[in-house]
Design a binder for these strands. Structure first.
Lengths: 142, 142
DNA sequence: ATAGCTGCAAATGCTTTGCAAGGCC
DNA sequence: GGCCTTGCAAAGCATTTGCAGCTAT
C-alpha cells in the first residue's frame, strides 16, 4: 500500500466506514482537504478558515467533532505544543516536532534525526503510552 | 550555594528584588508554598486551592500574574503537557517529564535517564530554544 | 507621594454541549 | 423510518484584562 492509496478518496471512504462513521459530505470534504497535500499540521481554526476559502461549508462545531473522530479512527494524531490550542497532525507515524515559538508553526522532525537512547523506567504501576519530543525553535537573532 | 540557600526566604526575597518585583505579602507567601517542599508541579487552580487551605488569601488573578512573573524571573518553568491547562515546575534545571494521562499528574524524569543523542538541524533561519520531552504514561492494564 | 500590586468582575479564546432540523442507510 | 450528523447558539473552562483601591518604597 503506498501513500496515494492510503489517502485516496476511496481508501478514506473505507476508513471512515471501518471506524463506524458515515461518509458524510462534511467528513469527506475535510478528509480531502487534510490529506490531499501530504503531511499537514492544523488547528481547528485554521482548518475552518481553509474550508471556507475552498467553498466548503462546515460549522466550527463540526470541525471539532470531525478532528476528534478522525483522531480516534487513527487518521490523525493530536500534538500538544501549546496550552491553549490543539494541533492535529496528518502524520500518524512515530516522529517528533519542531515548534516555532514565534510563528506558532509546527513542523515534523525528520525521523531518525533525533535518537532517544534508553527510555527511563516509568513510575510504579504505569506503562509508557507515548514519547513526545518537541523542539522549540525561535527565529535567529533574539 | 546549596538547595536550602537557594530557596530560603531571604534568597527568594533577593531574587524577587533582582527581578524588579516588590516582595509583597502574596508573592512571598506563594513563593514559600511553592519552594518549601522541594520540587513541585502545579497548575494555577491547584496552587490557589492550596493557598486557601493554608489560610493565604490570594485571588486567582494574582496567582496567574505571580506564576508568570516567577517564570520570567527564572524561579519557575512552564511545562506544556496539556492543551487546556498550564503546569508550572519549580525545578528550572534541564530535565524532562512523565505525564500520567489518567491522573493528570506530572513528575520529573531523573536527569540522565533519558539520553537524547544528536539534535536535528532546526529549520532554516531558526535556532533551538528548548527541547521538551514528555513521556505519557498510563496505569498498568488498559 | 507615586509607581507598582492586588482583587474583583467582565471579557476573551478555545472547545464542548444541547437540541432541533437535516441526511444517510 | 430511524439513527446518526450537522449547525447554531449557549454553556464551559482556563486564562487575561480593565480599573479602582491598596501598598511598598
Amino acid at each position: 500500500m503506498n501513500e496515494t492509496e492510503i489517502y485516496s478518496t476511496e481508501a478514506l471512504h473505507e476508513r471512515l466506514r471501518a471506524a463506524g462513521m458515515r461518509p458524510t459530505r462534511q467528513r469527506e470534504e475535510l478528509a480531502e482537504l487534510l490529506f490531499r497535500d501530504g503531511n499537514r499540521h492544523v488547528t481547528a481554526e485554521v482548518l475552518h478558515r481553509e474550508a471556507a476559502q475552498d467553498g466548503i461549508q462546515v460549522s466550527l462545531a463540526t470541525i471539532y467533532n470531525t478532528l476528534h473522530q478522525f483522531t480516534e479512527a487513527g487518521l490523525l494524531r493530536e500534538v500538544v505544543v501549546d496550552s491553549g490550542r490543539a494541533y492535529f497532525d496528518t502524520n500518524t507515524g512515530p516522529h517528533h516536532h519542531f515548534f516555532n515559538i514565534e510563528s506558532q508553526e509546527l513542523t515534523d522532525i525528520p525521523p531518525d534525526s533525533v535518537a532517544v537512547g534508553d527510555l527511563p523506567v516509568p513510575p510504579a504501576g504505569t506503562t509508557i503510552d507515548a514519547v513526545d519530543i518537541v523542539i522549540r525553535v525561535a527565529p535567529q537573532g533574539r
